[in-house]
Amino acid sequence: MRRTVRVIARCGYVAKGVVFLIIGVLASLAATGLGGNNVGTKEAITHLASQPFGGLMLALLSLGLLAYAVWRLLQALIDTENLGLGMRALGARLGFLISSGIYISLALYSFNLLRNAATGNTSPTDRTAELMSHPGGVYLVFAVGVGFACVGLRQMWRAIMRSYLENWRMVEMSATQRRLAEAATRWGLSARGVVFMIIGGFLCVAAVRTDPSEAQGLGGALNVLARQPFGPWLLGTVALGLVAYAVYCFVNARFRNVDP
């Protein structure tokens, strides 16, 4: 059982890293004017499918994303992190459950794309409008925005406090590996935190103005950075940070303690 869980978790972290690597590389190319584009997770998966051997890579990615969703579900249900049942712990486990749902959605999108039947690639505006159409939907959108902003702050807090070290098997890492892994992780978590805070801010604005068009996803958040003063520099810094976050995922695949 433990060996199976380890394989599931490590494959999942690799797949997640591949997605963020594509997003970061494309955004880096856009920042330097070399033809890239600012994309979200589904667009990154679609980009992979269009490459040589895209079908094979997409099949492997689909399985990896499904593995990551299963790993998140296990973290939530059997408490692989030994968090307990306190309020803070239950909040973290709820976050794992939500993350599992998100990656199941991405895995299904990948499988459908593999069958040339990808559907539901709706924009953030469409999803926000759908939520707002329900009773209390505006408040729900605002709550989701606050949630994104809180996740972004937590990512930056983890980078500052270096709490990720608690999950790594440090005895298996050389001094050089640890230094490089820490540098990539702190940059990656900070960049992802910035992006999540931007997404959360725009969702809150969309709720306050009751205007779904204000909502932005990951690609939209990167476009927002690009339009600011010194935009290419800002975008380039965050884009390379997303590449660094991919490295962090690969480090987790190799050195994270994933024993249940």
Rank of each mutant, 00 (worst) to 15 (best):
T4F: 14
V7M: 09
I8G: 00
A9I: 06
G12R: 10
V14I: 05
A15P: 05
K16W: 12
V18Y: 01
V19A: 04
V19K: 00
F20E: 05
F20P: 02
A27E: 04
S28M: 04
A30L: 08
L34R: 13
N37L: 13
N38H: 10
G40K: 05
G40C: 04
K42P: 06
A44L: 04
I45W: 00
T46H: 14
H47Y: 14
A49W: 01
A49L: 04
S50V: 08
G55F: 00
L58E: 01
A59Q: 02
L61I: 01
L61M: 03
L66I: 02
V70P: 07
L74V: 00
Q75C: 09
Q75D: 11
A76S: 05
I78P: 08
E81P: 03
G86M: 02
G86P: 09
M87Q: 15
A92D: 11
R93Y: 07
S100K: 03
S105P: 07
L106C: 05
L106I: 01
L108R: 05
F111K: 05
L113I: 06
L114H: 08
N116S: 12
N116I: 06
N116A: 05
A117R: 15
A118V: 12
N121D: 14
T125D: 11
T125F: 08
D126G: 01
D126A: 07
T128D: 00
A129D: 13
H134W: 15
P135E: 14
G137I: 06
L140K: 14
V141D: 04
A143L: 12
G145C: 11
V146H: 11
G147E: 10
G147T: 12
G152Y: 05
R154N: 14
Q155N: 14
M156E: 12
M161K: 15
R162M: 09
Y164M: 10
Y164A: 08
L165P: 10
W168L: 12
W168V: 11
E172P: 09
E172W: 11
M173I: 09
S174L: 08
A175T: 13
R178S: 05
L180N: 07
L180V: 01
L180F: 12
A181H: 08
E182S: 02
A183G: 07
A184N: 12
T185W: 02
R186C: 11
R186L: 07
V194P: 07
V194K: 03
F196I: 03
M197P: 10
M197I: 07
G201W: 01
F202T: 06
L203D: 09
L203H: 07
V205E: 06
A206S: 02
A207C: 01
V208C: 02
T210V: 14
D211S: 02
D211K: 12
P212F: 00
P212I: 03
A215C: 02
Q216M: 13
Q216R: 15
L218H: 14
A221N: 06
N223P: 01
V224H: 15
L225G: 07
A226P: 09
Q228T: 12
Q228W: 14
P229A: 03
F230V: 12
F230K: 12
P232F: 06
L235T: 03
V238C: 04
L240E: 05
L242Q: 07
Y245L: 05
A246Y: 08
V247G: 09
F250S: 01
F255P: 03
F255I: 00
F255W: 04
R256E: 13
N257G: 02
V258C: 03
